[in-house]
Design a protein around this nucleic acid. Structure first.
Length: 265
DNA sequence: ACTGGCGCCTGTTTGC
DNA sequence: TGCAAACAGGCGCCAG
């Protein structure tokens, strides 16, 4: 369930559960999960006997460096991917890629829907460049964040979801940020004033910070302030009590409060 | 050059 | 209750 806050949690799990441990070997249950034509035997050859020495995150991607000046693992979680450290002999059902440590359990990369990918890359910087990812939504300052929105004409929801504009936001946290700012998801970028854009940046930061603070569990957000707990609950706007409505915007289901987010002309 | 729409996968929820 | 359809927190690719 992976947007930027989930990636923060997963990076932490990799750091806590996998750094500085020797990899005894890897198991690939479904090769579809390996990206860029990576073959299971090559993943194993590359990682066997090595240790992970560093982690990094950009948007929804998590990276783990192996060895020194050798290369990085890149994790992308699709819609149902996740990682967790598991004790010896307790492998979860959808752990399609497994990293086994000497005498210390394994890191399980799970993804029931098989949209997630594990890759071997040279560096995170080169990967971000090659994938044309925009600035990380949580590290970018306001100028860096807003620059890619210049000269865009589509809906604000569509642009927030576009990883080449800003990396890290997905369907639910984009909806939450727009809710906080009172902007209808179908509003176009040119229709937003400079002040509205800056306020939206602040809202994105506040939403991501709050999500990280509850370990990326949207239902654990303060139900008096955030829409997300109600998206999965009573379906009502927490600030006005009116029922939330849905609309397909840029191919995704957008939830919004009709009382706070008036539709564009 | 941009944008929105479709298909990839499969487990879970919804509706007749 | 049972089964089929719709849906889901993403993204690569395609056509307009």
């Amino acid at each position: 369930m992976p947007e930027l806050p989930d990636a923060v949690v997963y990076e932490r799990r990799v750091a806590d559960g996998a750094l500085n441990r020797t990899i005894a070997g890897t198991t690939v249950v479904d090769p579809l999960i390996l990206g860029d034509g990576l073959e299971p035997h090559r993943l194993d050859e590359v990682l066997q006997g090595r240790t992970l020495t560093n982690t990094h995150r950009h948007g929804k991607h998590v990276f783990a460096r192996y060895g020194h000046d050798t290369g990085w693992l890149a994790f992308h979680f699709g819609m149902t991917g996740r990682v967790q450290h598991v004790p010896n002999g307790e492998m979860p059902e959808y752990a399609y890629v497994q990293f086994h440590f000497e005498n210390d359990g394994a890191l399980a990369f799970e993804c029931p829907r098989k949209f997630a990918r594990v890759r071997l890359i040279d560096t995170p910087e080169a990967f971000v460049e090659a994938k044309d990812l925009g600035p990380d939504a949580r590290r970018a300052d306001v100028e860096t964040f807003l620059e890619p929105f210049e000269n865009r004409r589509g809906t604000i929801k569509g642009r927030l979801l576009d990883q080449s504009v800003v990396a890290g936001l997905g369907n639910i946290y984009a909806d939450e940020a727009l809710y906080q700012e009172g902007i209808h998801p179908r509003t176009t970028v040119p229709a937003l004033s400079e002040d509205e854009r800056r306020d939206l940046y602040e809202a994105v930061q506040a939403v991501l910070d709050a999500a990280v603070a509850v370990d990326a569990d949207p239902e654990a957000l303060d139900p008096d302030r955030f829409m997300l707990p109600h998206r999965y609950g009573d379906g009502r706007c927490p600030k006005t009590g009116v029922p939330l409505e849905t609309e397909t915007v840029s191919g995704r289901t957008a939830y919004y409060s009709p009382a706070r987010q008036p539709p564009p002309e």
